[in-house]
Amino acid sequence: MAAGGDHGSPDSYRSPLASRYASPEMCFVFSDRYKFRTWRQLWLWLAEAEQTLGLPITDEQIQEMKSNLENIDFKMAAEEEKRLRHDVMAHVHTFGHCCPKAAGIIHLGATSCYVGDNTDLIILRNALDLLLPKLARVISRLADFAKERASLPTLGFTHFQPAQLTTVGKRCCLWIQDLCMDLQNLKRVRDDLRFRGVKGTTGTQASFLQLFEGDDHKVEQLDKMVTEKAGFKRAFIITGQTYTRKVDIEVLSVLASLGASVHKICTDIRLLANLKEMEEPFEKQQIGSSAMPYKRNPMRSERCCSLARHLMTLVMDPLQTASVQWFERTLDDSANRRICLAEAFLTADTILNTLQNISEGLVVYPKVIERRIRQELPFMATENIIMAMVKAGGSRQDCHEKIRVLSQQAASVVKQEGGDNDLIERIQVDAYFSPIHSQLDHLLDPSSFTGRASQQVQRFLEEEVYPLLKPYESVMKVKAELCL
Rank of each mutant, 00 (worst) to 15 (best):
E70L: 11
C98F: 13
V363E: 05
P162S: 10
M299H: 10
R83M: 11
L186D: 02
M389L: 08
C173Y: 01
L406D: 06
D117M: 01
L423I: 08
N185A: 14
L174K: 05
L211E: 04
L484E: 14
N297D: 02
V475D: 11
P435F: 06
D430Y: 06
H437Q: 11
I265R: 02
M89G: 05
K284P: 08
Y472G: 10
T201R: 00
Y472A: 11
E425R: 14
V324I: 09
S261W: 02
A2M: 15
L255Y: 05
L193C: 11
T347F: 14
T154N: 05
P446L: 04
C340V: 15
A388M: 05
M26I: 09
S67F: 10
A77M: 15
I339T: 15
P366Y: 04
S306Q: 02
L440E: 03
Q325P: 02
N357H: 09
I358E: 07
C172H: 06
R37Y: 15
V262R: 01
M65S: 04
P435C: 08
T204R: 00
A146P: 01
Q456H: 08
L423S: 05
T166P: 07
R371M: 03
A410Q: 02
K402E: 06
D216Y: 08
L272T: 06
K101I: 13
Y432H: 11
V413S: 13
V138L: 14
S454C: 13
L165G: 00
I287R: 02
A260M: 06
D333I: 00
I436H: 04
R338A: 02
D430A: 11
R309P: 01
Q408A: 15
L271K: 03
S474Y: 14
Q164G: 02
R171Y: 01
K134A: 11
L352E: 05
H437A: 12
L362P: 07
L423C: 03
D59N: 12
Q41T: 09
V29N: 11
D129N: 12
V115Q: 05
M89I: 04
I386R: 02
C173H: 02
R40D: 00
M387D: 02
D420M: 06
D268P: 01
Y294P: 01
A163N: 03
V465Y: 03
L124I: 10
W326C: 06
S31G: 12
A22P: 11
E213H: 15
C305A: 09
L272D: 04
I238L: 06
C172Y: 13
K75Q: 11
R194Q: 10
G214V: 06
W39V: 10
N185V: 06
R396L: 05
K75G: 12
L362R: 04
N71I: 11
L346A: 12
E250S: 12
N336V: 14
